[in-house]
Design a protein around this nucleic acid. Sequence first.
DNA 1: AGATAACTACAGCCA
DNA 2: GTAGTTATCT
Length: 772
Amino acid sequence: MTTSADFLSKLNHSQRCAVEHFCGPLLVIAGAGSGKTRALTYRIANLIIYNKVNPESILAVTFTNKAAKEMKDRLDKLLAQEISSKNYKQPFDSLSEFNQKKLLSFIYKKTTKQLWIGTFHSLCARILRYDINKYQDSKKRKWDRNFSIFDESDVQNILKNIILKQFNLDEKTFNPRAIRYAISSAKNLGLSPEEYLKEHSYSKGRVIAEIYDEYQTQLAENNALDFDDLILIPVCLFQDNKSVLGYWHSQFKHILVDEYQDTNRIQYTLIQLLTTNGKINKNSWNWKNRSIFVVGDADQSIYSFRMADFTILLNFQAEFGDGLPDDDTKTMIKLENNYRSTENILVAANNLIYKNSQRIDKTLKATRGKGEKIYCYKADDEHIEAEFVISKIQELISINSELSWKDIAFLYRVNSQSRPFEDILVRKSIPYTIVGGFKFYDRQEIKDSVAYLRLIVNPYDTVSLLRVINSPRRGIGKTTIDLLLKASQELKTSLWEILIDETSVKTLTGKSSKAVLNFVHMIKKLQEKSTELVSTDIFNQVMQKSGYIDDLKRKETEESDNRLENLQELYNAMNQYREENNDPSLQGYLTNASLASDLDNLENENNKVSLMTLHSAKGLEFPVVFLVGLEQGTLPHIRSLNNPLSLEEERRLCYVGITRAQEKLFITYARERSVWGSKETKIVSQFLEEIPQNLIDNHTNIIPEKSSWKKNNSMDNNTKWAVGDHLVHYSFGEGEVTHVLGSEKKVNLAIKFKNLGRKIIDPSTNSVTKIF
DNA sequence: AGATAACTACAGCCA
DNA sequence: GTAGTTATCT
């Protein structure tokens, strides 16, 4: 195998081993900032260029659509460099503009376009567009290739209807959200309604199984799938149908999975089926020209709420690999060199994550300078916190000419924490972008127009049909709709089939029938056109013919103007999709839209401060990071406080946050925070206390005299504390002092609480009251 | 049938 | 606080 030395010269030894891996299984344990994306990208390039692997036979699973896009872009650049130096004997940049363009379009056509790179969901949706007609479930439910993908609110609609209207159940005992979670979990374990029933034969479980069964029926009636089905159905199809599995097994010779620690059972089963062709006996696997290559870091596993299970990563060696110990194995490589952060940041991160019991030992090794201490700030409340953070970034920007807005990120636990930061950023006209959060596709006008498009592709999609049948208002009211729905239920046909029969509509609805028939006529016309027009043209037609645009224009309010702008933006997004993916089909766009979280398209080009949750921050890095809201109940999140395993996951989240920082890390927390409109006193996060104090510079705005506590609390601040004192903590309850740490000026207490074990608490924050 | 007022449950992270 | 739903009025 000849591999260009230049190509690999930018890699360290471990990275190079990973990149040069050709056949068989390989697990890459990649710590934060160890260059794992680089290893993945280089390996794909290496497979294509030097191992002459057909791009079509490479399946690369990323965690987000954005990561997929980035990987494709990086690959384009890398391939351009390599091919340029091979074929033209000069670097890509020195080629003429014409040759650059020619080369890039050649690479796109021959390579990047052929690759299967995407999330589990998008890749599975693509597989299902070919083969879903070959599947039927145990109750003979079937779907066709025009299936809709229902988002969470569509799913909630259906489930609420089943639970409250059809089954007449009590909302308290059968909370739709909880039921949704149960069904989703079942699907992620690969359980059908019947299998779920077997495992939950108690009374409530039986009802949930029935709801699940009815839910599947309704999905099938709508020719629709939810997110979980996108993965579950391919798995079921592969298990039922050996020839379909055989086809895809021989298609995908090299399978790569990024963020393997966040894979769940059903995703694992999918990978396993594709890799082994469903053969259970390890000795019968043929690794010739075939590989499974997974990259992950158990310390960054933060999706257990989505059924992610990092023991899958821990079991890779036993399931696929040689199972030998770390020093002898040929199927595992550890990347421990960190190229991202300064040493202080890494030491803090390492010390924090050591506190977890569930992990494989791994230490991030610094390759850069020591760096600055972590700047820690205690604010009086969340507004002061935001004031501090923003005045700090203004200060940093003004004294450091190299630094710009895009180098700065604010990371928080929950989306609602962004509010105070946004307010001040707006006031100070600092450009910012919120990653994730309120989603573009959740807006009413976007959902409406997407529903029109879904209906055109898939007329069985009754959820979309009901959404648009009377919006804009066209005189088809509740009574009319109820009559039609009742008829469709009695005749056991889809609503659309009732609607397209003119006589039925006339008999059923009398004087409203004209409006209904007009609507049906319009949709039919658009369906006919949809075969000849490109997606963007259909969109324009829909918006005009439906009267949606006119309706908004007539209103002339600020809100309607805004909606019109959003629709324009949707048009742009469709156009962009069409050009980038060379896919003029409406269905292609709709799949993309259902799976896209938000429009993070033109992000990097704009110089803006980034605001996002810790979950969204995974995989990113910033020179300056503000990790905000480090309080018990915020991070760690309140719902994890009484569960050791969730607490470990919160610690991993905090670890992810810390390791995003390249140069400077700021950690802030507030004494008091508004939650649901009412104020709550907070205490500092245990995670902050788990970081060695010598790495931290502490600051605060709180002057003891000013603290609001003084005004309405007679307890003085100078309580003398001694070992054996009994006290009450406002949230941990009763406890006993076991150690008094520090001296006169700054005392900390080690307190043994009744059921919670020992904690270290600062009594000057007045969170504790002495009893005796 | 549609608009408006009153009421309630609520927000944890995501493809 | 808000979003979404229900009750009441026109």
